[in-house]
Simulated scan of single mutants.
Amino acid sequence: MRAADLQVVLPVARRETTAVEAGRLIAEGGLVGLVIANESGTPTAILSAVDVLQLMVPDYIIDDPSLSSVFDEKGAGELWDRLDERTIGELLDDDGVTVRRMLTIEPDDTLIEVAARMVDARTQIARVKGSPKDAPTFVTLPSVVNAILGYWAGKGPEGRTG
């Protein structure tokens, strides 16, 4: 199995992407992270979905999670009234947030090469080299783990047994 066999098109966000837009991308796509493009549109970084969630929770509650228990549904809803004003750029500029550099892999890299490089880079998403700029393709951590488990189960790359 090669990287090209696992590649998928993922949405790409930018600095100006709002917390609402980023949240929708993650929720609708079941994403583990969000690909971030630079000013020219080239994917250069990854933010974990947890870090994007951080945009949706006020800093004072993150600093003291016990405060979260004093909010009922209405109060919690009021916390989220301004989500459309917060952007991915805030996370990119936050020293407390780990922004991963985009790992680029070759389409013919083997499954073990992809897995090893993703672990070494500590990333959930890798860009497949040579994919079009307007529809870049990526390999995700869940697809790599799923492929490894397929081998482990004795199914092999094409679903054969034995």
Rank of each mutant, 00 (worst) to 15 (best):
L149K: 11
N38E: 14
E158N: 14
R2E: 12
L67K: 15
D64N: 14
G23I: 07
S48A: 10
E106H: 11
R117I: 02
T44H: 00
D59F: 10
A4W: 03
T140D: 09
L55Y: 06
K155T: 13
M118L: 04
T137Q: 15
E158Y: 13
V20N: 04
F138S: 03
R14M: 03
G156W: 09
G150P: 01
P157R: 15
D108C: 04
K74M: 12
D5Y: 06
R15A: 14
A116L: 13
K155N: 13
E21R: 11
P11I: 00
P58K: 01
G23V: 08
L53F: 12
V50Q: 12
A121P: 05
D51G: 01
E90A: 13
V119Q: 12
D63W: 09
D120S: 15
G162M: 02
E158F: 14
V97R: 00
S68Y: 08
V57M: 05
T123P: 06
S68V: 10
I148D: 02
G30Q: 01
V145Q: 12
T110P: 01
P136K: 00
D81G: 10
G77E: 08
P58G: 04
G75E: 11
D81V: 13
T17G: 04
G154Y: 01
F71D: 05
A115R: 11
G89E: 07
D94S: 04
S48H: 04
L149W: 11
T110V: 02
E158L: 14
T104M: 07
R160C: 08
A135H: 13
Y60S: 12
V12K: 01
G159V: 08
L91C: 06
F71K: 00
D64Q: 11
K133Y: 09
V97T: 14
R24A: 12
T123I: 05
L79I: 04
P142L: 03
A37S: 11
I46Y: 01
L6P: 06
T161I: 14
G30C: 08
V145Y: 08
Y151D: 13
G41A: 02
I105M: 00
D109C: 05
V12T: 10
I125W: 03
V128T: 02
S40R: 15
V145C: 08
M118D: 06
E85D: 13
S131A: 07
R160Q: 14
R101F: 03
G89N: 06
E90N: 02
N146R: 15
L83I: 02
R117G: 01
T104D: 03
L91E: 07
R117M: 13
D93W: 03
G156Q: 07
D134T: 15
V12W: 09
R160F: 14
T137N: 08
R127V: 07
D72W: 05
V57E: 06
I62K: 14
G41Y: 06
V8G: 03
G130N: 06
T110S: 14
Y60D: 15
E73K: 10
R127P: 02
G41T: 04
L55Q: 06
L25E: 09
E90Q: 15
P58I: 07
G41Q: 04
D81H: 12
L67Q: 15
T17A: 04
T110Q: 01
G29E: 07
L92P: 09
T87E: 10
W152S: 12
R14Y: 09
T137W: 07
V70S: 11
R2G: 00
I46D: 01
I62T: 13
